[in-house]
């Protein structure tokens, strides 16, 4: 897959990433030839149903796939032209937290309860920038201010249990950005928060992205947020990317039946031309188990447009327009 603007070298490039998990039920191919490109300073959204491999994609980039039982079987992940899958654990530690920051879905449990939030932010500054204790703590206070936490000097001395969920997620963002990474991975940063706080966190991410120029991988279920924040979007299904492209294209002209289904589930997104909503309001059926995926397209059992070929072979990503790709035999037939 080439990037949308051909001569623009991507900041992060994931190519044909395959991740397998050994489970009791057999081998589970959690990621199956996933490819992604993120340009510096852009926001890439990743969407898809629970269990489709969004978090695993993020953890692979961080080099944090739990091993055992999981492992990166093949593929490449390169950041600024540097291959991450070849790095030793020690070298990866230098990348994590310094070049790539990550925030997680669970703000309530993602901070260590026995250290103050200031210490936890300062720790990464001390680690990666060899800063003194005071300098690191001063940076921590600055970061707390940057994520709009009132009275940052006082809050730096608070323990996580003394803060609300929204505050804790702000602290997580401050921690992830403390060493000014070029890439921030936000794995469902708002899922555990209530609606008003969700909007605040998204606004904050957008502001920070504008100020710092950090590229963001934004994993979310919230198509509205994707529409508002992201430049590009990748849609995942059962460990594969089934559609990707610029947000404007994918949301207005979704090509894959699954993407079409996803978008019609969101009331205020109006694809052009409109898709018959009655048919697709809800995607019927269930996500298949990853241990016994057949030879065909994983979405085939739930797809209304499926035909014989869909059962037999997996479709590859096909370029539909300059900045849009889809993996579906229907598209192949149409373009042929």
């Amino acid at each position: 897959m080439s990037s949308a603007i051909a001569n623009d070298v991507p900041l992060l490039s994931v190519k044909d990433l395959v991740v397998d998990f050994k489970t009791r039920a057999g081998n589970a191919r959690v990621l199956d030839h996933v490819s992604l490109d993120i340009k510096a300073g852009k926001i890439l959204g990743i969407v898809g149903e629970s269990g489709c491999g969004k978090s695993m994609t993020a953890l692979s980039i961080m080099g944090l796939v739990p091993n055992p039982p999981g492992k990166i079987t093949s593929g490449s992940i390169s950041l600024n032209g540097r291959e991450l899958t070849d790095l030793s654990e020690e070298q990866l530690c230098d990348v994590r937290g310094s070049e790539i920051g990550m925030i997680f879905q669970e703000p309530m449990t993602s901070l260590n309860p026995v250290f103050t939030v200031g210490e936890q932010i300062a720790e990464s500054v001390r680690l990666h920038e060899k800063a003194s204790k005071q300098a690191a703590m001063a940076r921590a206070v600055d970061m707390l201010k940057a994520v709009d936490i009132p009275e940052p000097e006082i809050r730096a001395r608070a323990y996580p249990h003394q803060l609300s969920g929204g505050m804790r997620q702000r602290v997580m963002i401050a921690m992830a950005l403390a060493c000014r990474p070029t890439l921030l991975i936000a794995d469902e940063p708002t899922t555990a928060l209530d609606a008003t706080v969700q909007a605040q966190i998204f606004d904050l991410l957008q502001d920070l992205q504008r100020d710092t120029g950090t590229a963001i991988v934004l994993i979310t279920h919230d198509m509205g947020a994707i529409a508002e924040l992201a430049d590009d979007v990748a849609v995942m299904y059962a460990g594969r990317i089934i559609e990707t492209g610029s947000v404007s294209n994918v949301l207005s002209q979704p090509q894959h039946p699954y993407t079409q289904g996803l978008i019609t589930c969101v009331p205020h997104l109006v694809p052009d031309p409109p898709i018959e909503r009655e048919v697709l309001r809800e995607i019927p059926g269930m996500v298949p188990a990853l241990t016994n995926l057949g030879a065909g397209c994983a979405f085939e059992p739930r797809c209304e447009k499926a035909f014989a070929r869909c059962k037999a072979e997996k479709p590859a990503l096909l370029q539909i327009s300059e900045s849009q790709f889809g993996a579906c035999w229907v598209l192949e037939e149409e373009s042929a």
């Binding site: 961080m62 994590r96 937290g97 260590n112 250290f115 997580m172």
Partner: peptide, 26 residues
């Protein structure tokens, strides 16, 4: 198995610091 251990790893802390600082104190 706690989430904050994953956070500590994501920060780039070496295994030693994860085990003896973040995990052990808890």
């Amino acid at each position: 198995g706690a989430d904050y251990i994953r956070t500590a790893r994501a920060k780039g802390l070496p295994q030693r610091a994860v085990l003896y600082k973040h995990a052990l104190k808890n």
